[in-house]
């Protein structure tokens, strides 16, 4: 892909991802409604899709207020960071054999780095708010990051071992014979859980647990800055779905249909699954979250790593 083509495609991805995240706010509420035997927002426009426009209008016209007791510079910087980090993460996603922004041989590491950066946003937002609930949210986010980041990276190493490359395109190409969700089922399971925890989605949204911490790290945020946090969360959801589709479900691979369509179908199905998780599973207690991460997920990941390594060696030798 040419330089200009890559740049224009990058811009297109930014617009598409932000638009997708906006529509997702409505879509998620609609799906949650259906699964809870309600209708969800269905009044504005066909199927209520104009609810997105109404919400945006409301958030944009709200007073852009910074609390006088907050650390002003950090308070304003925090919501921007999560959106920027998540959007940068999209750079390495291969949408189809020739639709991508960046094809680097450390694509996977780049993605892991970007999602880790997003945690700073939550942390700094909680810290800069100078509010005890926000601080607790930030603290929880830090602890959650430390415990889930560890096996998030490790769970992907099985995929890397089978492929022999960190490049995401190479990983997709390596799945021509069999999607990695079969030999790497354990890796998929652990990465899925780490991914939910990483994007602060329910059932792992303890940093903002509204029943305990009012709104957690974004208690003091309102208007467009709050919208940025929300945008970041939904971008994270799309990004994680893209990554799972790429790493475990063969990315653009699939019969008959064009590659891009296959990719979109897989991502959409995964997003539906994440929404279903939110509709069905209650939030765990904080110590349960921690012990799950360290006592179950980490050993499982290590087991997966060891077994995959042994099998890979055996197949080679």
């Amino acid at each position: 892909m040419t330089e200009l083509g890559a740049i224009s495609f990058g811009l297109f991805i930014i617009v598409a991802a932000v638009g997708g995240a906006a529509v997702l706010t409505w879509f998620e509420r609609r799906m949650l409604g259906i699964w809870q035997d309600r209708y969800g927002p269905n009044r504005l426009g066909p199927f209520g899709i104009l609810q997105v426009a109404a919400d945006m209008l409301k958030l944009l016209t709200k007073d852009d207020w910074v609390p006088p007791f907050a650390d002003r510079a950090v308070f304003i910087f925090a919501p921007t960071a999560i959106v920027v980090a998540m959007l940068l993460g999209f750079a390495v996603v291969p949408f189809s054999p020739d639709l991508y922004v960046l094809d680097v041989n450390i694509g996977l590491l780049f993605f892991l780095g970007m999602t880790s950066l997003a945690v700073y946003s939550v942390l700094l937002g909680g810290l800069a708010s100078n509010n005890k609930y926000a601080l607790l949210g930030g603290l929880r986010s830090a602890a959650q990051m430390v415990s889930y980041e560890v096996f998030m990276g490790l769970s992907l190493m099985g995929v890397v071992m089978l492929t022999g490359s960190f490049s995401l395109r190479a990983i997709v190409e390596a799945q021509r014979d069999m999607w990695f969700c079969i030999p790497q089922a354990l890796g998929l399971f652990t990465f899925l859980i780490a991914g939910i925890a990483e994007s602060h989605r329910l059932p792992f949204d303890l940093p903002e647990a509204e029943h305990e911490l009012t709104a957690g790290f974004h208690t003091e945020y309102g208007g467009m800055k709050f919208a940025m946090f929300m945008l970041g969360e939904y971008l994270g959801l799309i990004l994680i779905s893209c990554m799972i589709a790429t790493l475990f479900f063969g990315g653009w691979l699939g019969p008959w249909l064009p590659p891009l369509l296959w990719f979109c179908i897989k991502v959409f199905a995964l997003i539906m699954f994440f929404i279903l998780l939110r509709a069905a599973i209650p939030r765990p207690r904080y110590d349960q979250l921690m012990s799950l991460g360290w006592k179950v997920m980490l050993p499982l990941t290590l087991l997966n790593l060891v077994v995959t390594g042994a099998v890979a060696l055996w197949l080679e030798g």
Binding site: W35, D37, A280
Partner: peptide, 19 residues
């Protein structure tokens, strides 16, 4: 139990809304 919960909720895609 968690998987069973997911399945039950998924089945609710086809139930009528109570509201």
């Amino acid at each position: 139990s968690q998987l069973q919960t997911l399945w039950t909720i998924l089945q609710h895609s086809f139930t009528r809304a109570e509201t």
